[in-house]
Design a binder for these strands. Structure first.
Length: 425
RNA sequence: GGAGGGAUGGCAGAGCGGCCGAUUGCGGAGGUCUUGAAAACCUCUGGGCGAGAGCCCCGCGGGUUCGAAUCCCGCUCCCUCCGCCA
């Protein structure tokens, strides 16, 4: 969420920034008006409270002195003030609630460096690595759902029987491949990231803090009976890990990694890209996340991106890096790079990672702050995170890329310690 | 699931209707002393809103009262015992 004070201190800059994400100027004006009314009402409320407090102290003194009659008079006056305070206070709460609700729905301001654009089509391809369209043979032009079915390592029919479509079931070497990828990736981040195994069901607060709610409630699975949400990404529990806390600057950046299942209803995407593993309701992903000072944030962002990229390179996959334009940026995001791998069988670029910088937008929702080493001042941290990586589409790209003319598949050598045999079929 | 106990500042731990945003100890910062250090002593040391005056925060949300950290109700979390169980 944005700092309301910016509405007062730099309304024009704020409007200009939000306009790049398509937010109308009226919304900022609406914020300004609610903020003005909120402060006006809280001032009235504070004045009334101050008078009640003063009177109450006098009552105490008079009663001790035995001046019962005078005390009674003050009590009556205070009772009256109290009633007025209650009314003003209720109004103040209503306005504060409206302000917060609006604030929770207004997106983050994009970073100055983020490219302008209206939507997906305007994202900028920053670089393409390891891709030569002529280097793929006919044997690699088989989609992973066919390869997986032929080798008995992907059983979409059984998954659908148990849970419905878009709930994949991997088996044998296919299941082991997912486990290998997870173990390998966690180990690759172990040099700088603390491994966390967070809960997969979280409270509403955690979903709000990460920016999933209130806007994207339809995309998340909700367990009504217990009022818990199935996490759509480890970003949710990891962001709330430090909620309500004040960290020491010396401890920053805090770097965390976690492998978790991720659950997505994909409510708005029914029927689109649903073949095979292109879009699924449940998948495993390794996430890397950091809390940093504003000064550290750009370097941390670059490091997260470099880590996700190096994993793709080590897996021998062709990939490209997209600088996400303002029109396609997520609600909480100031800057975002997406990584897409090339899957020759589907002949598609598949998004497998999103490396994001949220400035203090999430930290403000989650109330994560740090104490500056120099002057001891307290301010919100910056949060950053990236997938490194999300496995289903990697699984698809590996199986398609590694397919040989005889129909068997060769998997990357780096996974040998977990796979044993890197040849499938 | 049942019974009981608890939640106060970085930590420990008082306070149980007014003089309490809160005694004290530890920890932390600075200073005096010292060749230097230790010890001793002194001072300071939570967060939020607000231009300020001031207001809010003693797990969270309500209530009682002129006045609530203190009384009442609900919720959450932690601990102990019993039950169940991967």
């Amino acid at each position: 969420m944005l700092d309301v004070r910016r509405v007062r201190t730099e309304p024009d800059a704020l409007k200009a920034g939000l306009a790049r994400k398509g937010v109308a100027g009226e919304e900022v004006d609406q914020l300004a008006e609610l903020d003005r009314r909120r402060r006006e009402l809280s001032e009235q409320r504070d004045d009334l409270r101050a008078r009640v407090k003063t009177l109450s102290k006098e009552v105490g003194g008079l009663r001790r002195a035995g001046e019962v009659e005078q005390a009674e008079a003050l009590m009556a006056e205070s009772r009256d003030l109290g009633a007025r305070e209650k009314a003003v206070s209720a109004d103040a709460d209503v306005v504060a609630g409206e302000l917060r609700e609006l604030l929770l729905r207004i997106p983050n301001v994009p970073a100055a460096e983020a490219p302008d654009g209206a939507g997906e089509a305007d994202n900028v391809v920053v670089r393409v690595e390891g891709f030569d369209p002529d280097a793929y043979g006919e044997h690699q032009r088989v989609p992973h759902w066919d390869v997986g079915a032929a080798l008995g390592i992907l059983d979409l029919g059984r998954g659908a029987k148990i849970s419905g479509s878009m709930f994949p079931l991997y088996r044998g070497a296919g299941a082991r491949l997912v486990r290998a990828l997870t173990s390998w990736a966690l180990d690759r981040h172990a040099d700088a990231f603390e491994e966390i195994r967070p809960p997969s069901l979280v409270r509403t607060d955690a979903m709000v803090a990460a920016g999933q709610l209130p806007k994207f409630a339809d995309d998340a699975y909700h367990l009504e009976r217990d009022d818990l949400w199935a996490i759509p990404t480890a970003e949710v529990p990891l962001t709330s890990l430090a909620s309500g806390e004040i960290l020491a600057e010396a401890d920053l950046p805090v770097r965390l990694t976690a492998a978790t299942p991720c659950f997505r209803r994909e409510a708005g995407a029914a029927g689109r890209d649903t073949r095979g593993l292109l879009r699924v309701h449940e998948f495993d992903k390794v996430e890397i996340l950091a809390y940093a000072t504003p000064e550290q944030a750009p370097a941390v962002h670059a490091d997260l991106l470099a880590r996700a990229e190096s994993l793709l390179a080590e897996l021998g996959l062709a990939y490209r890096v997209l600088d996400i334009c303002t029109g396609d940026l997520g609600q909480s995001h100031a800057r975002q790079f997406d990584l897409e791998v090339y899957a020759p069988g589907c002949d598609l670029w598949l998004e497998v990672s999103s490396v994001s910088w949220f400035t203090d937008y999430q930290a403000r929702r989650a109330d994560i702050r740090y104490r500056r080493a120099g002057d001891g001042g307290v301010e919100h941290v910056h949060t950053l995170n990236g997938s490194a990586l999300a496995w289903p589409r990697i699984w698809a790209a590996l199986v398609e890329t590694g397919r040989r003319p005889d129909g068997t598949v060769v998997l990357p050598e780096v996974l040998a310690p977990w796979l044993g045999d890197t040849t499938v079929g």
